[in-house]
Amino acid sequence: MALPGQQELTHLEEFMEGVWKQNPVFVMVLGMCPTLAVSVSAVNALAMGLATTFVLLGSTLLVSLMRKAVPKEVRIATYIVIIATFVTVVDYLIAAISLELYEALGAFIQLIVVNCIILGRAEAHASKNPPLRAATNALGMGLGFCIGLFALGAVREILGAGKLFGVALFGPDFQPWVVMVLPPGGFFVLGGWLLLFNWLRRRQGGALKPAEGHVHG
């Protein structure tokens, strides 16, 4: 996001913010509840990522369009209503596209409402920027979230089932690591990715802060 007094970012930079520098999963550690719960397979993880991106994009656009009209007293209430609307929409869309996916994701689709990335973006970025810029930033964040979820889901599916996108990788005799699709596996894999990123950062010079951010839902 553009801090006051900072040089305005180009659209590409704006986009890359969320993908890399402020990656919501690996750097900011945001929106963990749905991330961990549904990332048992790459498909579920990507579906959740896309659903979140859709909500993120829709709500930031609407918030940005209405940014001049919304009085600050009711702004959070407005944002929440807008976000809940898009979540309801995406909930119905997923049920219409694939019931199987809908049941795999369960109540976690609706829990996107309390995903802090979305409210955070609405409050910190979309309410201060024109639609195009807000949308670019939201898309970047969404893509970053998808990448993060995919990284988690892929590891858990490969080790936990020996498959990726349902395709067996190691032949029929593979011994699945059941723990990976269980709750502890979710914590371990995400923790492992964070460790890897911390370690890489440290090797790159250590000037950057460790990947510890604001931990929110």
Partner: peptide
């Protein structure tokens, strides 16, 4: 505990 969760059959 890790292998108990990972390889419950073995």
């Amino acid at each position: 505990a890790f292998v108990q969760a990972a390889f419950p059959v073995s």
